[in-house]
Design a binder for these strands. Structure first.
Lengths: 356, 356
DNA sequence: CTGAAAGCGCTTACAG
DNA sequence: CTGAAAGCGCTTACAG
């Protein structure tokens, strides 16, 4: 995993000189454009900025200000996060990308599993002994733990969870808007009765149910058309069991023409449940997931889903952590950042059957 | 207003030299600490970082990477934003702070009022003719306008509004969590029947109603205890009229011991309505606002409220705009940023009357 | 508004 | 792990 390579990955050093050559102007002109220290003609300015952006100089310059303050970061997570790697692809993907971002920035990443009791002292000890500058909390919802971290005077950012008391900065996917996007698409295809298969174990997942409901309101559809089926966990088996039970209880699809799952893992289980009942996807019922993990792409039929920028969550969290470290004394409002998700349309979702 | 002063306000130039002197180490040591280019003892590292932060060097270094790319920015707003300045203190405060942030960064800020039809072409023309690098949209909810801006290939950020389709970056207050915070406090004081006075004209305001409901759910209270009163606008007169009508319809407070308003302006009107009925605040009923504008502080009794970091919204939007400009080609997820709000307890809110 | 040249601040081998 | 010294990149008057 991450943390083993300490050395920073060195990017090719583009300088102001390269920009000036490429743009065909003097070095000082580039400097003036970038700093606004002299009035430059719009044409030259535009060309220089464009070249600077293209060559990655703008990004490098920005990065220059960033590096250094962060040397080591502890990432805390629930005890089962690393154990269930084969299934918990979402956490795994977030962690891997976070590791990559740390490597690129020369940050030592120290993983720490929260103990079952959710004790903050063990975690704070880990931060102290590893001489970490900051703390990331992955998938942590326990309010007592968040309180304890907020009380301790340490830079901390929640990764894929949120703090309703707004004590800690957080980065999450745009769960609500993403779910609304997917549901809106289904409604736009003509679906009217949609079943949302979800799990109530996490706030971030519940946001997807809110977005699901939003879409019905947006279209002026009655809220009863938004139907729910609750799974006991986010795992495929739970989705399979929940939908099987739902189909039994309703003696079939009961007018539902599309199923929107709050996680791809649930959707993969639901796909099995539907196949077991001889229901065709998307012929009899459309299926939509959420997360954008690889197994969905290779399922049969391939799973339409809401793609979450999992690779960007960690880097965004590092940025917030850094901002927090820079502005210690200065009062800075808590930042809650959501990253936009987008719809990935594959074979599992289509217009409803004409007979419906 | 902003835009008149083009010259950048020059901050006192703290350099690595000042840090080294203050920290009592060599210049190169400071450089090594800041760049992680050599292993430094934790004690020295901590001292250097602390001094660098205290002297503002960290912030200055960060700012160095930022400046220049943004030369001019257009801020678009609904046509009535500037006209009603005496009342629309919230917009005014956001704009003023945005102007200050632009001045400090040497950015020319070009205000632009959206025409009544919400035509995007006029706005895009204004961006072109003023040679602006980016566009801020203040209090803009019109989906067609947002669509048109998103389609135009221009860096744009929503200020105090959100895009449910996640096409544009946005900065808003943490409306939902802020409202939850306030309601939680009232419930914690013993209030059980709380009236939420709100206005349904804007999504951002509706988020406050959601947070209001969240708090009841958090405490396991029945949703019927969360009561609603809808005003026709966000102005004090609308709040006054709505609550007067509500009191008439319910023949008094009807068990309500606290009123939470979705805006300070509404609360100031409600205060008048309550006084007109001989109801004492907070003796008979507690009152809580949202926004943290000055008139609330000087009302009698002084208004408890949820303070919104209005001064920070504009700077945060500029930062998002800049990030967007730097990473043009590169795919970057849409960013939705919420800034934390905090509770300001003054005289208008207290525990419920014992007789209740 | 542009560009050659001086100057300054930060970085980077290198010695101890 | 620290610090004196060389070097490099960016900034900044200044001439045209």
């Amino acid at each position: 995993m991450a943390g083993s390579v300490i050395e920073r990955v060195k990017p090719p050093k583009v300088g102001i000189k390269d920009v000036s050559r490429e743009a065909g102007v003097a070095i000082s002109t580039v400097s003036h454009v970038l700093n606004g220290t002299a009035p430059i003609s719009p044409a030259v300015r535009a060309r220089v900025l464009d070249v600077a952006r293209r060559l990655g100089y703008l990004a490098r310059r920005q990065a220059m200000g960033a590096i250094g303050a962060l040397q080591a970061v502890v990432v805390a997570m629930p005890p089962d996060t690393l154990a269930q790697t084969s299934l918990n692809l979402v956490s795994w993907t977030i962690l891997k990308a976070l590791g990559g971002a740390c490597e690129a920035r020369g940050i030592r990443l120290v993983p720490h599993a929260i103990d079952a009791a959710g004790d903050a002292n063990g975690l704070l000890d880990a931060v102290a002994t590893s001489q970490a500058d900051g703390l990331l909390l992955l998938n942590i919802d326990r309010p007592e733990l968040i309180d304890a971290i907020a009380a301790a005077d340490i830079a901390a950012v929640l990764l894929n969870s949120e703090d309703s008391r707004m004590r800690l900065d957080s980065v999450t996917p745009g769960n609500r808007f993403g779910a609304c996007l997917a549901t809106n698409w289904l409604i736009g295809q003509g679906h009217r009765q949609i079943l949302h298969v979800t799990w109530q174990g996490r706030t971030t997942i519940r946001r997807r149910a809110e977005g699901f409901c939003d879409a019905f309101a947006d279209h002026g559809l009655p809220p009863e058309n938004a139907r729910f089926c609750y799974a006991k966990s986010w795992e495929p088996e739970a989705g399979e069991a929940a939908v099987t039970a739902w189909l039994d209880a309703h003696k079939g699809l009961d007018g539902v023409t599309a199923i929107f799952c709050a996680a791809d893992n649930l959707a993969l289980g639901v796909m099995r449940a539907l196949a077991a009942r001889g229901l065709n996807v998307p012929g009899d019922v459309s299926l939509m997931g959420f997360d954008g993990i690889a197994p969905g792409q290779f399922a049969a039929p391939s799973l339409s889903t809401v793609n979450v920028p999992l690779e960007q969550l960690g880097a965004a969290a590092l940025n917030l952590l850094e901002q927090r470290l820079i502005s210690v004394g200065a009062p800075r409002a808590t930042q809650k950042l959501e990253l936009g998700c987008d719809l990935v349309l594959r074979d599992s979702a289509a217009a409803p059957p004409i007979t419906a």
